[in-house]
Design a protein around this nucleic acid. Structure first.
Lengths: 346, 346
DNA sequence: CTGTTAGCGCATTCAA
DNA sequence: TTGAATGCGCTAACAG
């Protein structure tokens, strides 16, 4: 510390008024004359005053900070969501402390504790792959700190949730593939103990059922949806007899990886195998053929998450109203699934 | 707040000892007997004590928090870098407050001020597109708060920097294209007032010079490197006469977008036009033909940034040693640039 | 409208 | 090794 911080006391002394008045002048306190307010503001600027957020937090018993726990920062969807959160939070005077669980329950628990100690005003969580329960969130409940689950959710009476209709999305994609003539559709997805994958899977099964197609266990493949997993799936597919005629992958990146690998072996897409992905990742536009996908915008979801959180923070603490929001999505049809001209955008 | 927080006073009362002793027991204070330490720790756990970070921060005059300003959270490189930062920070007991400038100087200034008020112990910055100067960082310098620039840097005596050798990378990519027979290479890049783009451009020019090829102003295109920009570039290319025989784009996403668009018009890649990108984005593996690119791993850069920052924080404040790190990169050669078999991996 | 007073919870003197 | 006392900087009561 080369220079000492300027405090409201310094300003008060310089202006020969009380620190309390300075404090009021700095904020938009109703009980302050325009004159002294201007005086204070001018002096503050001239003296290079910077408010000490900690002292203020300590006194006000709130931090204007929202804690975030996500599985991984570096996925297309999550980084979009975070970008949306940051934008909304920032423009509303909130800060974000961002943490990632790296898909492990252990780190998720650690992060929750850190954020709790940091007295975040609210918590936004997207669960890790292997989280079993939410005991680590209990302290927040006990203290009445709003908790919001986003995307990877856990149903709990005192939490808001924000998701898309994954069941419907899964149903739509599968139905679309069926409408294109697919009868033997592989489903490649993530850990089914997470709602997003479980719901999409249910949608997939329901669509088969409604179209009088059999569901087969061997058509379900679960993995981590990485590029490498995609290559492995492609090799697996090539050994199948008969080949599937459609593949529904709940990640565009993984889908693209499978496609590219299959094409190397001469498989025609969509003629032999039609493809559907999920997320509308940029890659879905760039892979060839263009990948049919579910558009599911993270940015807006992030913005909305913060918006709901802030509205909850502004309510009277005792009547916390939780909300369950289902965000819209849409099916974007590209070449990877088009085997005849008879389909329409949903 | 449904329950009141437990404080060290509550523990002290319960144990009939002083708050000071409790405070010592909770930390690893040297002057504390193992016996009372255990007593305190047990009581704390039983009572559900959670330390109040703010009070501690206020008292200790440090926050164990590092502020981060990046242009955009949601780019492949940045989210990787953030993931690396979060991991390293978290495992070292630091929190990250993450903000984005959305490529505008205005928001960057705002964010800097917020982070300053939050008394972050250190600041990591990657500059926005249109930042002209770093006056907004001055308060940090004055107060002796370590500042580290990452990737998009600004040379300043009291800042550490961490970059890759962009000049060399640009040189290598261009040389590689030349070695493949390209003689008329387009360069598509970002705002040249940012070091990363300026340096790559210089490398490009130097390579041309060294290979006795002319540099032409009309072969330089600057834009925001988005998918849409890529499509526009493709249209522009199609109108050129003669067509370029090589394109070096400093973003894989944009490069892929150009390639896809050109292929729609029947341009053969790499036969007619060879391509080189930058960043080793997943898309570079998935686009066809595979995109030759510069591998430049964000995750490690993020980890390293935090590591350096923390080591600086642990130094005595008066002898702050800044570091300038140049991280390695490598050229990954894929089909998009291969027009003969005579090249080797650099 | 402004001033006085009294903590928020913790960590560090200093003294014992 | 422990305790008492103090103040980090700010803001909310309360009083004027």
């Amino acid at each position: 510390m080369k220079e000492k911080d300027i405090t409201i006391y310094d300003i008060a002394e310089r202006l020969q008024i009380s620190p309390a008045t300075v404090s009021r002048g700095l904020k938009d306190h109703p009980a302050i004359s325009q004159k002294t307010k201007k005086l204070v503001l001018d002096a503050a600027k001239k003296m290079g005053y910077q408010s000490n957020t900690f002292a203020s937090n300590l006194r006000r018993r709130r931090t204007n900070t929202i804690g975030v726990i996500v599985p991984k920062l570096n996925s297309s969807f999550m980084s979009d969501a975070l970008a949306g959160m940051e934008k909304m939070a920032n423009s509303s005077g909130y800060n974000l402390i961002v943490t990632q669980s790296l898909e492990t329950e252990k780190k998720e628990i650690l992060n929750a504790s850190t954020l709790f100690n940091n007295r975040v005003d609210g918590l936004i969580v997207s669960l890790s792959y292997d989280t079993k329960n939410i005991n680590h969130i209990e302290p927040f409940f006990r203290k009445g700190i709003p908790v919001l689950f986003m995307d990877r959710v856990y149903e709990h009476k005192s939490c808001s949730t924000i998701v898309i209709d994954n069941h419907k999305a899964g149903y739509e994609m599968t139905s679309h593939l069926i409408s294109q003539g697919c009868q033997n559709i592989l489903h490649v997805t993530g850990n089914l103990s997470r709602n997003v994958y479980a719901d999409r899977f249910e949608g997939y099964k329901q669509a088969l059922l409604d179209h009088h197609l059999p569901y087969k266990d061997e058509n379900l493949i679960t993995n981590n949806l990485s590029l490498e997993d995609g290559e492995a799936v492609a090799r697996k597919i090539l050994e199948m007899d008969p080949l599937p005629d459609g593949v529904f992958v709940t990640s565009d990146l993984c889908a693209a990886s499978i496609m590219v690998e299959l094409k190397k072996s001469g498989v025609k897409i969509p003629e032999s195998i039609a493809f559907g992905g999920f997320n509308n990742d940029p890659v879905s536009r760039l892979v060839e053929p263009g990948l049919t996908t579910i558009n599911y915008k993270g940015f807006e979801m992030g913005e909305l998450a913060i918006k709901i959180m802030i509205s909850q923070l502004n309510q009277h603490q005792n009547i916390t109203m939780t909300q369950s929001i289902v965000l819209g999505h849409d099916l974007i049809i590209r070449q990877s699934s088009l085997r005849n001209g008879s389909d329409t955008k949903v």
